[in-house]
Write a protein that binds this DNA or RNA. Structure first.
Lengths: 348, 348
DNA sequence: AGCCCGTCGTGAACCGGTAAAGTACTGATT
DNA sequence: AATCAGTACTTTACCGGTTCACGACGGGCT
């Protein structure tokens, strides 16, 4: 990347100009602008006035160079770029993060990566080049390969996921196990015996937690045939999984999905197969983005405030950066929001 | 990527360490790492070896400070954070941008802002503090207030929108007018006489262009009653607009939407009102994200490759930064993809 | 008066690179 | 032999802040 000619008219205003105008040294300006003791209130005021007059604000880059960290937070998402557009969860999550960052005039550095190794390398690069002041790690896997290199780095990191998965990084998490159990109990209470689950990739931590809880709760309630399908979290796979579930001889009367997109796709499949929702099959979505309210019937969902989740994550990261953080933080457990897509099974 | 043993653990490895190990001055290292002429191939190789051995890569912050721009591209989106999660267009668009940035090891700095003035101020801040090397401007309005301050800044900017809107900034655009005309002609050819349009906010440039083209084409075909509703681009407003259109005495037999979300919401409303799609009302979405294939019936749409759109935007920005850019760039016009949601109007 | 001490502020050394000017050496030209 | 050009580096001066050792000043105390 060649340096573009700087077409800025006039010279850029620096700390020196402010110092000159205020009649002090640049060290004094620095002290004043960082609210540290060492200049008198009078001088301080004179410096601020001068700065205001010149429209000066400290050059972030120069600040970073001498020790302090950038007001930039890194987030790498490991998935094919084309799929991101369909994941309402991440967009709401990001918007929550953004809200907190914006309060502090920080920004989010976003990058899509192909695999976890590339992601780990990227974080190293970002940290070493002082591009970011901290990072948000998501989508933990069993024995996640990102953990060892990042631990060695010493970068402030907030992990999103159950503490058992996050390899010791301070985490923010939601109780997927309880939520999955509640989903099953609710459907069982409606009278369903054959409940299926369309989940995310097998290796993904929170999918695994939900899968385990699903199975355990089914067993606990004496229900068998709790079929589970692992997918890649995209609509088409959700559709395919639904189709194959609904075609089987002992087809389920209720299906729990791991996100909204797959549930919406599942609803379309049911309609395409001439099955009525919820009479022939109940559908339960997860996350509860606005998407769930846009279908007919609207989708029941395990709902939580994803925006708020993102906010908590960002807040936690700031605590970590500032060294005031203590312990993992839990956000509310997804709770059932019944709408039109769940009901008692139709007796045949 | 194993961490090599560093001589002084704890201390950060800098260009000086590399220079020392390679037995040259740091100037030589700089020359080698920027692929500039001035060192022999032998020395160059020795420098690279030393750098590899120490695991050194240039400190981005220091680079920025001495003149060159960051490998970071800024994108500010002006809308309430909570809505972002539902706009498949932007997510696909961003993923396209990301793809091109990633090729060049650049990242996207994302920020949500509340209004256009805040957005302009943010770009000034980013540029002056050398945080970004260029920016992407979207959602142009009539007489957009961001244009004058940004022109004065001299920052490399790529504008997304019709050249008539982008105030002289080099632009990448898609022919919304032709696409809107095609949508109307198609529905008219199916036999529809009363066609409505649920559009975006009135002040938004591309919504305005589509509105004008819609009206012109309706007139050209001798159709009147081309009702248009302006919304805020979100599902609920799309639902409300659809409901009110379908309740009117001379209700339209076809509705064109300005994005997918509103069309999906519209489909749910039709279903809720007991109207069949497409017999009672045809629905035509815009953008054609995968969402359109997840409903039943699947939505016909004016479809374009939004991911590719994003890629072209990013590529153009790099050309601008490198000074090799020439002229506006047009990406393919959205074209009609008929699916199940459009058909001849039902005679009553 | 002599001493100590706290406050206010200065000056210079850094942070880790880039870039332009300067030096040393080689080989070709006059 | 002297001049010149070109290559391969080195030196040095930045970029725009932060930080820290140090000096000057004024007041209270013995």
């Amino acid at each position: 990347m060649s340096a573009p000619a700087s077409p800025i008219p006039g010279r850029r205003v620096t700390i020196n100009d402010v110092a000159a105008l205020a009649g002090v040294s640049k060290g004094a300006v620095s002290i004043a602008f960082n609210n540290r003791p060492g200049v008198s209130p009078t001088t301080r005021e004179r410096i601020f006035t001068a700065a205001r007059e010149l429209g000066w604000s400290p050059n972030q880059t120069a600040r970073n160079l001498s020790g302090r960290r950038a007001g930039i937070v890194g987030l790498a998402l490991c998935r094919p770029a084309r799929l991101l557009g369909l994941e309402p969860f991440y967009m709401e999550f990001i918007s929550g993060i953004e809200d907190v960052l914006a309060e502090r005039s920080c920004s989010l550095l976003l990058r899509l990566v192909r695999d976890l190794d590339e992601e780990a390398a990227l974080y190293q690069e970002w940290w070493r080049s002082r591009t970011v002041g901290g990072a948000i790690l998501v989508d933990f896997h069993q024995d996640d390969p990102r953990v060892p290199p990042l631990r060695a780095l010493g970068m402030p990191v907030v992990a999103v996921g159950h503490p058992s998965l996050t390899g010791g990084f301070p985490s923010v998490w939601t109780d997927d196990a309880s939520a999955a159990a509640e989903a099953v109990r609710y459907l069982a209470a409606l009278g369903h015996r054959r409940i299926a689950r369309v989940g995310g990739p097998a290796g993904l931590g929170h999918s695994g937690i939900r899968a385990t809880a699903f199975e355990a709760t089914m067993a606990e309630l004496g229900l068998d045939g709790g079929q589970q399908v692992a997918t890649g979290f995209v609509g088409e796979e959700g559709a395919r999984a639904t189709r194959s579930l609904l075609m089987s001889s002992d087809r389920p009367t209720a299906i729990v999905y791991d996100n909204d997109i797959m549930a919406v796709a599942g609803a379309a499949v049911a309609s395409e197969m001439g099955l009525s929702v919820p009479d022939d099959v109940s559908l339960l979505a997860w996350d509860d983005s606005q998407l769930c309210r846009l279908t007919h019937p609207p989708l029941s969902a395990m709902s939580h405030d994803v925006h708020h989740f993102g906010e908590e994550v960002a807040r936690t990261l700031f605590e970590i950066i500032e060294g005031t953080h203590k312990g993992a933080r839990q956000v509310p457990t997804p709770s059932l929001t019944p709408r039109g897509s769940t009901g008692p099974p139709h007796r045949t």
